[in-house]
Amino acid sequence: MRMRHFLLLAVLGLCALPALACRMTMAFEQWPPYLYRDAQGRYTGLDLELLHAIFKEARCTLLTVPELPTARRQLLFQKGELDLLPAASDTSERHAYARFSVSYRDETVGIFGKAGTHAVQRHVGSFGQLARGTATLLAPKVGWYGADYAAARPALEKAGRLNAFGSFRQGILMLDAGRADLLLGDVLAVRHEARLQGVPLTALPFLALRAPVHLMLNARTTSAADLARLNTAITHLEQRGVLAAIRARYEAP
């Protein structure tokens, strides 16, 4: 009887303790304006601000490790040495090793030309229409930029109308030098780099891609409860307009 009484008290005591706070580790990778170092060498950016707000609301701790290249981050994540990757697309293949939060922002891909040039044609309303024209295009070497671009890419390459760039800094320099008429890329990243270089741009009046992105959690090192806490935090912050206010500061032209 005395042992049963002790066990009951122990269970009641554990239930009375506060839930253990979730802790997740991610590695930095510079991707202005989502995550980068400012003039003082401090990390900042849209995704970092959104993450801090979400983790604070969820009462979780976000731990960070030094910068890693993309391939290395992906490898460590799949090996269970990183818990979190931001700005991830939810794909069926990744469900074998990851779980995904609700969306916390969209990614958008647009097409830009130098302001005032003939290549920026306001009447062009689709990627297919653009591909049937004569304008030359700069596009990133790697990454997914929408089904319309993927469908048009072989014909653009065959016609010699497509050139690739490695970084958006390089892409803006090439556009400014007249290496092509137009540039394809992430809307915020292109605008951020163009402002840094002082190159005025005009966007074509359509998006090549708009898609939600998510926080990708390691299925081995995080729990369903961790995911639920982050999802609840994102939902509450969206309802209060907190995340929208952060996004708006970066999305302003």
Rank of each mutant, 00 (worst) to 15 (best):
T136G: 02
L14R: 11
T61C: 07
C15F: 11
D47P: 02
T61F: 09
T61A: 12
F127C: 02
Y250C: 07
L51Q: 09
P205S: 08
L184G: 05
R59T: 10
A131Y: 00
F112I: 01
L48R: 13
Q121W: 05
P69F: 07
L85D: 06
L173P: 00
E67G: 04
L82Q: 10
A177H: 08
P33K: 10
G41M: 00
H95M: 15
L63C: 01
A248L: 04
A194S: 12
W31A: 15
V65G: 01
P140E: 09
L76E: 12
I54K: 11
G128C: 02
V187G: 02
H52P: 00
G160R: 06
G146T: 10
Y43K: 01
R240F: 05
A58W: 02
A233T: 13
A224D: 13
M26W: 09
A10K: 02
L46H: 09
E93K: 12
L12C: 13
P66L: 01
L138T: 05
V124N: 07
V65E: 08
Q30N: 03
A233Q: 08
A151W: 07
P253Q: 10
L227P: 04
T25C: 02
Q121K: 15
V65A: 12
E107S: 15
M3K: 15
A139V: 03
E238I: 00
W144C: 06
V65L: 11
V120R: 08
E49K: 09
L17R: 14
L46T: 03
T235Y: 06
F168A: 01
D47G: 01
P140A: 06
T108A: 15
L63Y: 00
R153S: 13
R37K: 14
A115L: 14
D186E: 14
R42T: 02
A177Y: 06
P212Y: 09
R99E: 07
T61R: 14
R99W: 04
A203M: 06
F55P: 05
A21T: 00
T25W: 01
L20T: 04
T70P: 00
F112E: 05
E193K: 04
V190E: 04
M24R: 02
M216P: 09
Q239C: 06
A159S: 10
C22Y: 06
E93P: 02
C22D: 07
R59G: 10
R220E: 10
D90P: 14
V213P: 01
